[in-house]
Amino acid sequence: MELKVGVVGCGNIFNLAHKNALKKIESIKVVACMDIDEERAREGARAFKAKAFTSLDEFLDLDMDVVEILTPTYTHAELAIKTLKAGKHVIVEKPIALTVEEGEKMIKTAEKEGLHLFVGHVRRFDKRWMQMKEVIKKRNILPMHIRKSEVQNLPFPKDYWYWDERKSGGVAVDLGVHVTDFLRWFFESEPLSVYAVGKSIKEEARANGIFDHFLMMITFEGGKTGIAEVSWAYPYPSRYGIFYHHVDIIGKNGRIRYTPLDTPVVGVAKANFEMPRFSPLLSTFPDAFERELRHFFSCIRGKEEAAVTAHDALIALKIAENAKESARRGEVVEI
């Protein structure tokens, strides 16, 4: 039976990633798209011959199995809780919520309603990292030190919601949860403490009094060290892409490294700059979103166990939240 899917939030992540992924999945039907911007809602709905809504209540009245929440971070909790209470499973973009407290409420609501709550930690569905993790297991690398960087030059203007800490949580949360989850996933250990330092580099960050460059040193059980670097302020040349991953894993039985030069983009060399052609997003290959959504739908059908749970997402956020506290106080914070 087809799952009936609704989408809330038809902005960037919908247009760049989820729309195409949803289109490729045969076993579901997108029946409704909701956005507070009517034009966006209509445009989204058009792609699926679905209904367009600007009112959440009317949207939630519809018969749907699962709702994808693809809105700015600060709205996640309220929307997810309402949707769960309306009896629909929820897939929400990462971070799970703006704060750990909100995230906990979401998880409690899902438990109470007996519904699934999934968080789109898409790194767990990216073939690069899946394969890397497999190699680590197969070859018994035993990682003790992992440095993961995710850096970019955030192209949005300074009044965009990303630059508002109360809306996005800042780079420490927005990109941070990707990396903190990655470290936990790869170490298969729990974090003990974090020391973090933040910087405001770009004009947009200074104007908003927000960090756009953030470093976390995370101590994991068993003497493992995780180094998470996230940045919106890298003045990178765009030759290889606009988003960069670095991974350096040092284990008892070997080392694995991935640099921006290993990213298989198709670069374009012309007198004027053009975006690389391989991937529209470049932080993630498009098939990762499709794999993620297929997996979540399959979990909803009861056919698979979740590869990443809302609880994992909550811990990823908790580390980032503790890290922000550490950066504020200039001290190590226990997790």
Binding site: M144, H145, R147, Y195, V197, K199, H213, L215, M217, G223, K224, T225, I227, E229, D248, I250, G251, K252
Partner: peptide
């Protein structure tokens, strides 16, 4: 001493905050 089981340390990472505001990470 994270990697080889030597009696001495084998790897370390330091975060250095400079007076002029530069942040550095050295492994």
């Amino acid at each position: 001493a994270k990697i080889y089981g030597f009696p001495v340390d084998d790897i370390g990472t330091a975060v250095l905050e400079f007076r002029k505001g530069v942040l550095a990470v050295l492994t």
